[in-house]
């Protein structure tokens, strides 16, 4: 697929030295070099959160978190693929929350650590989507779930923030909880409800 005259670069991926065309992502570079890789590969479009990598670029001492399918290789780049973490210990069932008045109280029982945020900013720095994770947690803690949820629109549940959090807050799950309770309690579209009512009465049918 690659053309002959394309620029080749040298990178290190999980300790292996690889030379590949610069137009390839880190995942494509592994395949190109003959390393079969299927775990940590998903949508290849940056929405599934599977291909978690740590990246250090040439002449930089900064390590950043990124998605492997979204990161093109560069000369001297060091890449490490990370195993996907075990799921969070937080569990809840939306049906057990009786009304929207109870959500904030239940939230603190489900996510007791959310109040312990040290404002270290690790979650913000680790987010490959640039989400204001820490602010989202603070908003959820105050019961401002709709506002908190809006911050997590782009969240792909890669769990980087969960790994980064020293207090085990699981910020991405806090964000998703915020979004889910907003829909569960407050999304009540008139056009949908009206159509459901018409259907319930049996007023609409399909002639095949």
């Amino acid at each position: 697929m690659q053309k002959q005259d394309e620029e080749l670069v040298n990178v290190t991926i999980n300790g292996k030295e690889i030379t590949a065309p610069s137009s390839l992502s880190t995942i494509q570079a592994l395949w190109h070099a003959g390393y079969p890789r299927v775990k940590s590969v998903g949508c290849l479009e940056g929405v599934c959160g599977s291909c978690r990598i740590m990246v250090r670029r040439k002449e930089s001492d900064q390590v950043t978190m990124a998605l492997g399918c979204q990161t093109l290789i560069e000369e001297g780049m060091q890449v490490n693929f990370l195993v996907f973490p075990t799921p969070t210990h937080h569990t809840y069932d939306l049906k057990m929350i009786n009304s929207s008045w109870e959500v904030q109280g239940r939230f603190h029982k489900i996510f007791p650590e959310a109040d312990h945020c040290r404002h270290c900013g690790g979650c913000n720095r680790s987010c490959p989507k640039g989400i204001e994770v820490e602010r989202g947690v603070a908003l959820a803690s105050k019961g401002r779930f709709r506002e908190a949820g809006e911050l997590f629109i782009e969240c792909v549940m890669c769990n980087f923030c969960m790994t980064a959090c020293p207090e085990m807050i699981a910020p991405n799950h806090v964000g998703l909880f915020s979004r889910r309770v907003t829909a569960y309690f407050h999304t009540r579209p008139g056009n949908l409800i009206s159509r459901l009512e018409t259907l319930r009465k049996g007023d609409l049918d399909v002639e095949k």
Binding site: L176, Y184, R188, P189, L192
Partner: peptide, 25 residues
């Protein structure tokens, strides 16, 4: 015929949709 109930079920799982200013889908 299932479709409207499918949307309702998804909302009850906690899925958001784009709404107009009156909350209609």
């Amino acid at each position: 015929m299932d479709a409207p109930e499918v949307i309702r079920w998804l909302i009850q799982q906690g899925m958001q949709f784009d709404l107009d200013k009156y909350g209609d889908l």
